Amino acid sequence: MENTKPWVKPALEFGPLILFFAVFMLYRNDTVAIAGQAYGGFILATLAFIPALILTTAIQWRITGKLAPMQVATLVLVIVFGGMSIWLNDPRFFKLKPTIIYLLFAVILGTGLALRRNWLGAVLSEALPMDAEGWRKLTLRMAIFFVVLAGANELVWRTMTDSTWVWFKTFGLPVLLFAFLLGNAKLYRDHALPTPKSSDDDRAL
Results as ranks from 00 to 15, higher is better:
L53M: 10
Q37N: 07
Y39D: 09
Q60G: 06
N29E: 15
Q60V: 01
I43Y: 01
A38N: 12
A48S: 14
F14S: 05
G15P: 07
L26A: 15
R28E: 15
A48N: 11
T57G: 08
L19Y: 01
V32P: 08
T46R: 07
A45V: 04
I18L: 15
L44T: 01
F42N: 02
D30Q: 15
T57H: 06
E13A: 09
D30H: 13
G40W: 01
G41S: 11
T31R: 13
Y27W: 11
F14D: 07
I50V: 11
T31Y: 09
L26Q: 14
A52D: 13
Y27M: 11
A22I: 09
I63Q: 01
A22S: 13
T56S: 12
L19T: 05
F20Y: 01
L47K: 09
W61V: 00
A52G: 10
D30N: 14
I54P: 14
G15F: 05
F20C: 00
F42Q: 04
A33D: 10
Y27C: 07
W61T: 00
L44W: 03
Q60F: 05
Q37E: 05
L17N: 15
G41M: 09
L19K: 06
F49G: 02
M25H: 10
I18R: 02
Y39L: 14
T57D: 10
G40Q: 03
A48Y: 08
I54C: 14
V32W: 12
L44D: 03
F49Y: 13
I63T: 01
L19C: 01
L47N: 07
A33T: 14
L55M: 11
R28H: 15
W61S: 00
V32F: 15
I59R: 00
I34S: 08
T31P: 06
A22Q: 07
L47Q: 13
L55R: 04
T31D: 13
F14K: 09
I54N: 09
M25T: 08
I50K: 04
L53G: 00
T56W: 12
T46Q: 13
A58Y: 03
L53K: 05
